[in-house]
Computed example of a mutant assay.
Amino acid sequence: MVLEFAILENRAVLTINRRDFFKLHKIKPEHTGIIACKDDLDWNRLATNIDAVISTESTLTGKVIRVNRFSSTTL
Rank of each mutant, 00 (worst) to 15 (best):
L60M: 13
A47D: 10
I7H: 07
N17W: 02
L75I: 15
T73Q: 15
H31L: 05
T32M: 11
E57Q: 15
A36D: 04
C37Q: 01
L46P: 04
F70R: 04
K38I: 09
E30G: 10
I7A: 05
D42L: 05
H25W: 05
T59C: 07
V13S: 00
I54G: 05
R66N: 12
D42P: 04
L75W: 15
D51C: 13
D40H: 03
K28D: 14
D20Q: 08
R69L: 12
I50P: 00
S72T: 14
A47N: 08
K63I: 03
A47G: 12
E9G: 03
D40N: 09
C37I: 02
F21N: 00
L3Q: 05
I50Q: 04
E57T: 04
A6P: 01
V2Q: 11
N68H: 07
N44F: 12
L60R: 03
T56W: 06
V53R: 11
V53I: 14
E57V: 15
L24I: 08
T15F: 03
I65F: 02
L8H: 05
L24A: 11
D51M: 12
D39M: 12
D39F: 06
D40C: 04
T59L: 08
G33D: 00
E4Q: 09
A6W: 00
E9I: 10
C37V: 01
A52S: 09
D39A: 10
I16D: 06
A52M: 13
N10F: 04
I65K: 01
K28T: 15
D51L: 15
L41D: 06
D42E: 09
I34D: 00
F22M: 06
G62Y: 01
A6I: 02
N17V: 00
V67D: 00
D20G: 10
M1A: 14
N17M: 01
K26V: 05
L8Y: 03
I7L: 09
T73V: 14
V64L: 12
T56E: 11
L60T: 02
E57A: 13
P29C: 05
G62P: 00
L46R: 13
N44E: 09
I16R: 06
D40F: 10
S72P: 03
R18P: 06
D42T: 06
V64M: 03
N17G: 02
K38T: 11
D42W: 01
P29S: 04
K26H: 09
D51S: 14
D20T: 11
L14F: 04
L8N: 08
R45P: 03
M1C: 14
N44P: 09
E4D: 14
V2I: 15
W43R: 11
H31Y: 04
K26Q: 08
P29D: 02
C37F: 06
E30I: 15
R18V: 11
L75E: 15
M1K: 10
W43S: 13
T32S: 10
L14E: 00
A52E: 14
I7K: 11
R19T: 07
T48L: 14
I50Y: 02
T48D: 11
V64R: 01
R18K: 12
D40S: 07
N68T: 08
V53A: 14
K63N: 03
A12S: 12
L8P: 01
L24D: 02
A52T: 13
A36C: 14
R45I: 12
S71K: 07
W43Q: 12
T74V: 13
W43H: 07
M1V: 15
E9K: 15
I35P: 00
A36P: 08
H25D: 09
V67W: 01
I16A: 03
I27V: 13
